Amino acid sequence: MLLINNTTVEPYFNQAVEEYLLNNVADDIVMIWQNQNAIIVGKHQNTLAEINFDFVNQNNIKVVRRLSGGGTVFHDLGNINFTFIKKYEGQNPKIDFKKFLNPVVQMLHKYGINAMFSGKNDLLINGKKISGNAEHIFHRQKKILHHGTLLFSSNLDFLRKSLSDNSAFYTDKAVKSIRSSVCNISDYLSENTGVEHFKNEMIEYFKNLYPTIKTYNFTESDRTMIKQIAGDKYSQWQWNYGYSPKYTFQKKIETEMGNVEILFDVEKGNISNVKIFLSFLPDAEIQNLNFALIGIEHKPEAIKNAINKLQLSNLKNIEFLNWFY
């Protein structure tokens, strides 16, 4: 078994790390790591339905889709992530969250934290969530990937605002996140312990738990290949947003100029079946607007470019992008 203390905090890189380790390292792995401000979306989720789009963009929070299913989580430097990658034998491995979470719970108990299992994949303190987890079986590699979060001293205000429920505008069959009350582990510690100290304690705990574990540091070759995966996949809009299951977007707004009604479908990131009505535009311009949006990607730059090319007089100097999110 290998122990990796991944000190890189770049979200695209760190999602690529897990894919690289799954495909290129034969040993079982425990990895401790952190991200700068980021939202990590489950593989089968509709990204736009899970995030507060305006807040995320205003605060330069990166949004990344991961390899596993489950719900959306928020990462920052007050949060510690752990990843287990383990080979399995036999033909029918089963998802077993407790198997991987037991060592984490035991470590928290060592600190006097009364962490408890809840539902299928959460850890709670006093009824509030401190850890969300996801797990996936990769049959081709015959490996199980388990990863989870530990809210230690996270910015909970940012967390709540980033993950504001936006699903009312979206109709889809995507996996939905379950919103929970959250808290920080640090609030329940008797001593003033920083996140870096707690992270190092986790690393030492796993060294003692698995006496034969070996520390592994990424080589330059590892980093080059991981950066390639990050650049080709995890930093790309098509993976992080365009991979979302087919959805319908519908929104009605009352503006100073009049009523706005937006309706369209999106599949593989591209807009179709557009039905937009603006009470302050002539019918001919509305028809041109509907036609101009067909086939473009559901992202701000594409929408803005398509509408600006039409030179619709009543939309000059109007912030119209929020109509589409």
Rank of each mutant, 00 (worst) to 15 (best):
N35T: 05
A306E: 14
Q250M: 11
R66M: 08
I85W: 01
N46Q: 01
I286A: 10
E19Q: 15
I318Y: 13
N322E: 14
M257H: 13
G90I: 07
M1I: 03
F169R: 14
S118V: 02
L3Y: 03
E267A: 08
L22V: 08
Y88E: 06
P300H: 15
I262G: 06
H109N: 14
N322Y: 15
N317V: 10
A16E: 08
D76C: 12
Y234P: 10
N35P: 00
I213A: 06
A115G: 02
L48T: 08
K275T: 05
H136D: 05
Y216R: 14
V274I: 13
I253M: 12
E256Q: 07
N81K: 06
N24W: 00
N322H: 15
D265V: 00
I51W: 06
P103Y: 12
L3P: 03
I130N: 02
K299S: 04
N184L: 05
E204G: 09
I113K: 04
S235L: 01
K43G: 00
K161G: 02
K86A: 12
S186P: 03
F158V: 05
Q311V: 03
G70L: 00
G78D: 01
T7S: 14
G231I: 00
I29E: 05
N288I: 06
S181N: 14
N133E: 01
G119Q: 09
N288Q: 15
N259Q: 11
T193E: 06
S244W: 04
Q34C: 07
H109R: 12
N308W: 04
K233H: 08
K246I: 13
F324T: 00
A306H: 04
V182W: 10
M257N: 10
D28R: 11
K87C: 06
K99L: 12
T215M: 12
E256W: 00
N57G: 05
G269P: 01
K110G: 13
L289E: 14
A49P: 01
D187K: 03
I185R: 03
N59M: 07
Y20S: 00
V17N: 05
S190G: 12
P282K: 15
V17C: 12
L151A: 09
Y12C: 10
G78F: 08
L22A: 01
I113Y: 10
I51H: 04
S221V: 11
I32V: 15
G269S: 02
G258Y: 05
K176D: 03
I39C: 12
S190M: 06
I95S: 13
T212Q: 15
Q15W: 10
M257D: 09
V105E: 03
Q311W: 07
K304D: 12
I307Q: 00
T215D: 15
V175A: 01
G70C: 02
T224F: 05
S118A: 10
L263Q: 02
G242C: 04
L2A: 01
Y12S: 09
S167N: 05
F152D: 00
P211T: 12
L108E: 02
